[in-house]
Amino acid sequence: MSTASFAPVRTAPAHGEKPLKFSGTDFKRWHRKMLFYLTTLSLSRFLTESRPVISEGDTDSQRRNAVDAWNHSDFLCRNYILNGLDDILYSVNCSVKTSKELWDSLDKKYKTEDAGVKKFVVGRFMDFKMVDTKSVISQVQEFQIIIHDLLAEGMKINEPFQVAAIIEKLPSMWKNFKNYLKHKRKELKLEDLIVRFQIEEDSRNSEAKTYKRTMEAEAKANLIESSTNHKRKRPLNENK
């Protein structure tokens, strides 16, 4: 057994921000932050190393001291992880003996749950539909959040696919504009697509306001004309 592998760990000053306590959700983010935090403490190797074993007949004091140092550093690492859990999860996991066992246990349990989250986000992506009663720009922003969640789950979605998906989700009143975009030969960038949507929506809103003012003016004119005609048709004896 090599004494080098059991060299005492000199814990470096922490330069990373301590992660917020993990409560059972968004494990992937907490996992990355905790790993970085332990790395700044020079403790991340204990996440993969198993506890060293010394036989009863081993009398090498230097080796025993190195193993004691390893146990001490592993104790620190394990408790940094435990203190990064909320009280309920702390109580459930505090009996785990080593950092590696604790890290592997959390990884096994919550990465499986993350797979369920991924399926949920995919379902949101597939089911998302734009409606005519809401601003297209605001709905595109909602859809972009879903795309961002997919990317955060490690799914690769390139920009042309994002552009095509957004165009395909346009509401029924945008059918002609959708067909116009789908038949454009030049590939659109996502940023350019958003600009086109903004211009088109502003134009539609302006036309809608103009149409509304025109209809209100016509209605007012018709009301005045109807009132004038009614007065002209009144019987003469009504003025007596």
Rank of each mutant, 00 (worst) to 15 (best):
E216N: 08
L85S: 00
D26I: 06
L76V: 04
S227R: 11
Y211T: 05
L47P: 00
K189M: 15
H230E: 11
I137P: 01
T40E: 06
I199V: 12
R29F: 08
Y37L: 15
L82S: 05
L89P: 00
K97R: 12
L20R: 05
A14S: 09
Y37I: 04
W70V: 06
G84Y: 00
A14R: 01
D26Q: 11
Y90P: 00
K212W: 05
F36V: 05
K100S: 06
S105H: 02
N176W: 03
V122W: 02
K111Y: 04
T133V: 07
H15C: 14
K118W: 00
K178R: 12
F120E: 10
K233V: 02
I147G: 01
T39M: 15
Y80G: 03
V131C: 14
F36I: 07
K118Q: 07
V96G: 00
L102M: 13
S42A: 14
T40G: 04
K111R: 11
S2I: 04
K212H: 06
I81D: 02
N222F: 12
C94F: 13
R196A: 10
K240R: 14
I146H: 01
K184A: 11
T48H: 08
I224R: 08
C94S: 13
T98K: 06
S172E: 11
K118S: 06
H15I: 11
A217V: 02
L150R: 01
I145G: 05
H230C: 13
L35G: 02
V9G: 02
S206I: 04
C94Q: 12
L106D: 00
G57I: 06
E200R: 07
F46M: 12
V195S: 09
A14I: 05
H183T: 03
D26S: 12
R213C: 14
R32D: 07
E17S: 09
H31P: 02
L43N: 01
S206R: 12
F75Y: 10
P171N: 13
D132E: 10
F128K: 03
A221Y: 03
R51T: 01
F177Q: 04
M173H: 03
T59D: 09
L38Q: 00
K134Y: 06
D60R: 09
G123Q: 12
S203H: 07
N179R: 10
D127M: 15
T40F: 08
N71K: 11
F22I: 07
N65E: 13
H148S: 14
